[in-house]
Design a binder for these strands. Structure first.
Lengths: 106, 106
DNA sequence: TATTTGCGCAACCGTTCAATTGCACATATA
DNA sequence: TATATGTGCAATTGAACGGTTGCGCAAATA
């Protein structure tokens, strides 16, 4: 069973879940209300997201709030990095500018 | 048959193919030499990459050179954008800096 | 205490995926 | 012309995927 971030975000429902959770933690039942599929189906997606640490849980009583964990998304960003230069100069600008403004850094 | 960029880059072999092609156009046979799987397997991956326009072909005689097309990868970057702020302030810095340096923009 | 609610887990089902093998066809090359 | 080479396409196979239904269990509620 392959379980990496790229495979996790391949599914549109899982991407939607991440977007929702990024706005605030939610329970599986609350999440499921945003979709047509069953709670169990959403729960399975959450499980996959948890396995690759895109999401972490916080239990309060019988309810489980799932939180978005952005760290792992950095992996995608990291992979994208070398390609970025080929479609935009925005980031070359960034590097140049940061170099000239190091002192302003917090 | 789902065929979008996210599904395309979910496979590690396809990501490797993209990285190789980003360095220079190649034929399927040449590409296959970098992997353990058969030429046909690689060819299938190329087909998927072509279908979502991550790759374009250029035929010369009986050989087909496949080129990397970065445009579609922007979709991934675009989706990543809102999340970026949550893991790094680098891009907030960028926005602030660009605002103060608009005149320097080429 | 009895009932409702939120949840994960397991079994099952049809579809998609990744890979292999075998083939046909066009282009090089001897 | 005969042969070798580069390629796409079709059929097949086993594994993984995404979904449903049914269940058990613990926590809240009546």
């Amino acid at each position: 069973m392959r379980r990496d971030v790229f495979q996790a975000i391949a599914d549109p429902t899982r991407r939607a879940i991440l977007s929702l959770l990024a706005m605030g933690a939610m329970t599986p039942t609350a999440l499921a209300e945003h979709f047509d599929s069953s709670r169990q189906a959403i729960s399975k997606h959450i499980q996959i997201l948890t396995e690759c640490q895109l999401v972490k849980q916080e239990q309060t009583g019988r309810e489980i709030y799932y939180h978005f964990n952005s760290k792992k998304l950095k992996e995608v960003d990291k992979w994208l990095q070398p390609f970025r230069a080929t479609w935009d100069t925005r980031f070359d600008q960034l590097d140049a500018l940061l170099k000239n403004n190091k002192n302003k850094k917090s």
